[in-house]
């Protein structure tokens, strides 16, 4: 049984990490990062079966691929706080010679990262490949991926979605961060995508909805349901309804903080709303 309070304390600390990372370099993507803080904590602390340390091949453990690489601040924070690299290294986010590039990369050898992402729409394909490799290796573990909702506008996703269903890639669970926002505005205004649930189902996926994507228990329950559906001949899609900027009141429910850093006052406000729990880096 997961200790929800403990997980939520970590979420609060991750929010602080996100805000402090982007504030320091006056760049980065806090909105989507904050919206997925609970999901990342749940994934790395409870859901995935992980081995100690990091090796690129990841045999004998679950894998995760972040397709919308711009939410790197939350990825880096949770990786560091899950033991992949020192938490102090978060202070190098987006700085020259850092392993914490603006968008995640294997190029600098940061433990926990298996694929560069940033140019959108490529993560599901990569996750399918890793899932197929696991099947060949008779490795009975699950491959997870996360995509943005706006990211689904990229055509490669639909090639991948078609492939995964047609080829019964059922050791794959892809979550979609449904925050309804993208850089230029709401997804409804930029390019309406219609009924995403119906689209995935029409392509032959099992779909699980998590209506409260910022509620820890809802995430844990929804992901457990998703896991229970895997291995049955269909890939699984999780529609994760999140609030962009969650946990910092003035950043919530807007695309304004998609790719904008807080100033000094805004940082202070955001941190005041999320008191230190596990210690700042």
């Amino acid at each position: 049984m997961a200790n929800i309070q403990k997980l939520e304390a970590l979420v609060t600390q991750v929010r602080r990490d996100i805000l402090r990372q982007v504030h320091k370099v006056n760049s980065g993507h806090p909105g989507g990062s904050l919206g997925c803080a609970e999901f990342f904590v749940a994934l790395y602390q409870e859901i995935m079966e992980r081995k100690d340390g990091f090796d690129m091949n990841g045999k004998g453990e679950d894998l995760f691929f972040l397709s919308n690489g711009h939410i790197s601040p939350v990825f880096y924070s949770v990786l560091a706080r899950s033991g992949y690299f020192p938490v102090e290294e978060l202070s190098t986010f987006r700085l020259l010679n850092s392993r914490l590039q603006g968008h995640p990369t294997t190029h600098e050898g940061l433990p926990g990262i298996r694929m560069a992402s940033g140019s959108l729409g490529q993560g599901i394909s990569v996750a399918i490949g890793a899932a197929e490799a696991k099947k060949l290796n008779k490795d009975n573990h699950t491959v997870y991926a996360l995509c943005g909702d706006g990211e689904l506008q990229e055509g490669q996703n639909w090639e991948a979605i078609m492939y995964a269903a047609g080829n019964k890639v059922d050791n794959l669970i892809v979550s979609i961060d449904l925050n309804g926002q993208q850089i230029d505005g709401s997804t409804e205004n930029v390019l309406p995508m219609g009924n995403i649930k119906a689209k995935f189902e029409a392509f032959g996926w099992d779909v699980v909805s998590i209506a409260k994507g910022n509620d820890m228990q809802s995430i844990l329950d929804g992901m457990a349901t998703a896991k229970s559906k895997s291995g049955n001949g269909k890939p699984v899609c999780v529609l994760l309804h999140t609030i962009m900027g969650n946990g910092v009141d003035f950043m919530m429910h807007t695309h304004a903080w998609h790719g904008k850093a807080p100033n000094d006052d805004q940082l202070a406000q955001g941190l005041a709303q999320n008191a230190e729990t596990l210690g700042d880096y």
């Binding site: 091949n57 990841g58 599901i124 990569v126 399918i128 490949g129 490795d139 090639e159």
Partner: peptide
């Protein structure tokens, strides 16, 4: 792996398959 007329997915899948050797 027959991927169909979907070259972008093919390249991404190939990249992913290297993870696992």
């Amino acid at each position: 792996f027959q991927v169909g007329i979907a070259e972008a997915n093919m390249i991404g899948m190939a990249a992913g398959m290297t993870i696992g050797g």
